[in-house]
Amino acid sequence: MSVLQALDVGLAFLVFAVAAWTVFAPGPFAATVGYVVYGLLLSLVWIRLFAVDVALTEAAIGSGVTGVLLIGAAARLRGAETTPAEEALTGLTRLFAAGLCLLVAAALAAVVLLLPDQGPTLAPQSMERLPETGLGNPVTAVLIAFRSFDTMLEKVVLVLGVVGVWSLAADRYWGGAPGEARAERPEPTLAFFAQVLAPIGILVGVHVFWVGADEPGGAFQGGAILAAMWMIVMMARLTEAPQASAFWLRLALIAGPAVFLAAGVAGAVVAGGFFAYPPGLAKPLILFIETFMTFTIAVTLPMLVAGPPRREPRR
């Protein structure tokens, strides 16, 4: 067994152990912290699978932003951790559930082992049509060109997510701002941290977005980093979340999918089909769309984490 293989096996056990911790940990807070660690380990697994784009996304969104969301929720749910006796499952049900889960996992493992080492692939087709897009990163090409329809609709899902989260506001808070108000005197340590980190982070976020055309990175990953910077500044209470009724906020939330959709429809007029790019203009158009998508992701993720409006709207 080579060193790398030994590391793989160790990593696999570690991921599994931390995952088991998040399921069986005594308290929800401990479980949530376990989940964040798990997400970081998982991005290492993605690197070992040579999927660097995915690793970046997993670290930024799967572990990072989701981690903030869940830890925040766990903190606010303190006091609700105890399970009333009538809701606890009986031993027999647990046993049955465990059996079922083992069965599913075993069947899945068996099928995974049966998959051929050299499986079917769309890698050659992707590379063949990559030049048309003017991009160098085939994953970005799949997201923004070959399967752009998926990506555009997934951006609509994010908008619906915001609508759904906001719909949980009390009526009197509708149109108000979520989260906490800007502090008169922000916590000095956190404020310092945010002031130092935010400019660097914004630079990194824009960089990750920009290189995404040719190297690992792109709108999702860059947008998530930008989102994290805004969240840190809000957490430090240097600024506060905007009002849900603000027109500019609504515009920012829909800009990504709206520009994408408009470009898709324009394709039907100028390039002979919905979501087709005119030859030669593909790359600038793709970068144009991605810019708006990055911006929208950077605004959407913090809004999803901030939750429904909790303060009365100011006129």
């Binding site: 995915v54 799967g62 692939t121 769309l122 050659p124 899902v157 619906l160």
Partner: peptide
């Protein structure tokens, strides 16, 4: 990973699907 071909060390199509999936899962 098993679809590594054409000079790529992994098939980009499922990778793109995972990225889409991670974002949806977060929402």
């Amino acid at each position: 990973r098993k679809g590594a071909a054409a000079g790529l060390s992994a098939d980009p199509v499922p990778q793109a699907m995972v990225i889409t999936g991670i974002v949806v899962a977060f929402a």
